[in-house]
Design a protein around this nucleic acid. Structure first.
Lengths: 148, 148
DNA sequence: GGAAAGTATATACACGGTCTATGTAAATCG
DNA sequence: CGATTTACATAGACCGTGTATATACTTTCC
């Protein structure tokens, strides 16, 4: 029996924040990742969604616009993304992922998967299904929190 | 049918890292949290486990010992934790949570819960159960990744 | 069509958070 | 008891992030 009382829901919120951040940090570190998780998420966004503006990237990842400008600068210096002028709006900077950026993203995915796989493989199918569904729910929740 | 092929498990690892970090950041920001998630996790650790050494805190949270020293310094400056000498080992510094630290932790929990509750309440019981189980699994996975 | 307001991005500056390398003191071991 | 190991702190460097502000462009409204 799952409690839907405020206490239950509130405890769940805190646990998800706390355990989500700890897991992401631990797993990323275990993958030997140098780049920030934000930078990797920017690459993933660009790969999935196509070219995006700096402001749109900042909005999606819930960091400030200057922070995103700095992130894009670092990625651009390393050749992982490229800036282009928006033909429809000369103020805007359109960010595009480069081939090198795609390769870097793929390399991270391999390293992360290799680092976490042993722990995941110890789980049963039921638990893997739970985690798969949870990943989708976390995305949905973050989207919803982001909208307002 | 859940695929247990390497591809499925590997994609799951990457999604959990990516969505876990994004959700934690988005929700924490929405709660208007100033303090870092690491600092909050330190307070939570101390509250749940009792007094802990600096090195033990660093090990649990998978950050370097100097980083944990700095985190404890900041918490100590704000009066949220206190250092004490270990009677059994004069090298060690035992960290204890103060009343103010407990209050701060509780305040964060309230803010975080209030921020996330609307999104959680839109979910059904099944999804809440999935998230509850997932939080426990993420903790277990992080523990396991941490052990080696 | 021109001034005022709004929007997209960049820059400046400050500080927190993290790392590696190293220092210091205490405990342990041979 | 001397050498090694352990626990923590300090030093120095750099990334990541925020707020405040500047710059350039676009939109709106007489």
């Amino acid at each position: 029996m799952i409690s839907q009382s405020p206490e239950g829901v509130d405890q769940l919120a805190v646990r998800l924040i706390s355990q989500g951040s700890r897991f992401a940090r631990t797993a990323s570190r275990r993958a030997g990742e140098q780049r920030s998780l934000i930078a990797l998420r920017v690459l993933a966004n660009l790969q999935q969604e196509g070219d995006l503006r700096v402001g749109e990237l900042a909005r999606r990842e819930t960091i400030s616009q200057p922070a995103m400008t700095a992130t894009v600068n670092r990625l651009e210096e390393d050749g992982l993304v490229a800036r282009a002028a928006d033909p429809a709006d000369a103020r805007a900077a359109i960010v595009r992922i480069t081939d090198a950026g795609g390769a870097e993203l793929e390399a991270f995915r391999m390293r992360a998967a290799a680092g976490v796989r042993p722990a995941l493989e110890a789980l049963g199918e039921d638990d893997l299904a739970v985690l798969g569904r949870a990943a989708a729910l976390l995305q949905q929740l973050a989207d919803r929190l982001n909208d307002r």
